[in-house]
Nucleic acid binder design. Sequence first.
DNA 1: GCCGATATTGCCATATACGGAATAATCAAT
DNA 2: ATTGATTATTCCGTATATGGCAATATCGGC
Lengths: 291, 291
Amino acid sequence: MELLNDMALFVEVVKANSFSRAAEALDMPNSTLSRRISLLEKEIGLRLLHRTTRRLELTEAGQIYFERSKRIVEEARLAHEQLGEMVAQPTGTLRVSMPVDFATTYVAPLLPRFATLYPGLAFEFDLTPRNVDLVAEPFDLAIRMAKPESPNLIARVIARVSAELYAAPEYLARDGIPAHPAELEGRQCLTMHTLASWALYSGSEAFEAKVGSRFACNSVAMIRRLTTLGMGIAFLPERVVAEDLQAGRLVSILSAWRGHPSSVYAVTETRLLPAKTQRFIEFLQEELRSE
Amino acid sequence: MELLNDMALFVEVVKANSFSRAAEALDMPNSTLSRRISLLEKEIGLRLLHRTTRRLELTEAGQIYFERSKRIVEEARLAHEQLGEMVAQPTGTLRVSMPVDFATTYVAPLLPRFATLYPGLAFEFDLTPRNVDLVAEPFDLAIRMAKPESPNLIARVIARVSAELYAAPEYLARDGIPAHPAELEGRQCLTMHTLASWALYSGSEAFEAKVGSRFACNSVAMIRRLTTLGMGIAFLPERVVAEDLQAGRLVSILSAWRGHPSSVYAVTETRLLPAKTQRFIEFLQEELRSE
DNA sequence: GCCGATATTGCCATATACGGAATAATCAAT
DNA sequence: ATTGATTATTCCGTATATGGCAATATCGGC
């Protein structure tokens, strides 16, 4: 189907009823236009228009071809316009995969605003902890706490979060309040893995505490819950425990120290994104910048 | 609309569900195919398919685009097939302009066969003596007794006719039977123009007779009629007067001499002819070859 | 008959697209 | 885990098409 483009040129020539005007409308040299139409005719094997310098007349074949072609070209234009809409205007369903804790803590509070901003958008959130396959599964976007190693994926930083140290008053009453990160190493530190190191800094001072506890779990929600139950010390972003702080279930400790900020990434499979995805990423970046 | 061709390629890729198979089906290198699809996506601004080396999956945009594109491409294929039909199979109406005398004498007897050969064809004959404008008027074909001077027109020889000399027995009884072309010059010779020369030859002998008469007319039918009425000598192809010879209204004179064969041309505006025109020209050439 | 408009053709420098091979990457099988 | 086969992509030299300009031819109106 090598002659589809020429078909569009032909339609333009017929509509303009002139090669030179069509060339102008198409913004191409009339020499090219003339040559292309001639080639089209040679390819088809039929003359499409009788031409004199003054007049253009469709041949019988040209009339038939024009009637069909103009519809085809018009439909193609509509198809591209529709895709253009997708680029310009968020529509359809936005499918996002992200960690459940990030979703509930950071994304959920923003959703009402974003959803009212684009009433046409629907949402599907997948909060399973697994790393979804952005290629095989129909996700527009994944939010990851670490940069993906695959070079094919596009990762944009949408937030930078840093953890701080928290514990329940009961726990502190029992084990005492540490005065320096070094003192963490003997304590019950609720970590994601059985062995971990918490990199802390205070001003220009840095300290890496090798920590651990009898409880390790890969769920922030669980760590938080255990902490409020007085099981140990947690190293979490403030936003995660904001409610607990307000309610007095947790208090900040070693508040001069904090973790190094780590990035949260919006990961996509390509840069050629529909508007819904682009707007969502931009929105998250904007709203989470302060974190 | 620079991306119509690529649209067809995209459809093929989706249908084949593979770049390499699509490339094979399209008979093009897969490098080109891959590049074109990538450019299409870049042009549109959206990724159309997620691809790994093993699997192809349509994006949401790709699905929408495919649904529309496949219809468009299919319609285009149909359009071209329809034109292909016009090239291969005579259909529609064949519009021919030709001299009335040629039409009645030579073409008419052949028409029944040609018409039964192609039942789908209709005919429109314009027998006005004027030279029709093949460009401005919807004629597929003109038959001319002389080669057109315009170099833009395509002329094919469909017949070669040579005239011979005939007269009515009454005329010969009155004026005598000429024994040599030189004797023509004093006689009543019914010509198209007031002044004419009849170029005759017999074997290797040639003679150009400057002839004329009191009657000149630009109609073969009229000349024939006048001849049968004994008004003079006519210089016409045998076929024109065949009936008169059979009926004894005319007899051949100086039958060793005949005119130089002159060509009859089928004239078209282009070589890119629909089947109906091509078949008609071929048919005439075939049937009139013996003349 | 002349003049302006217009399609076509030719030319050539340049840009673009192509084609083939190499590369990278994925998935299945062992 | 590793290998191997399959497949999309990338690279790069080359071929092709384009664009701009001018010349040509021709039409149609004055």
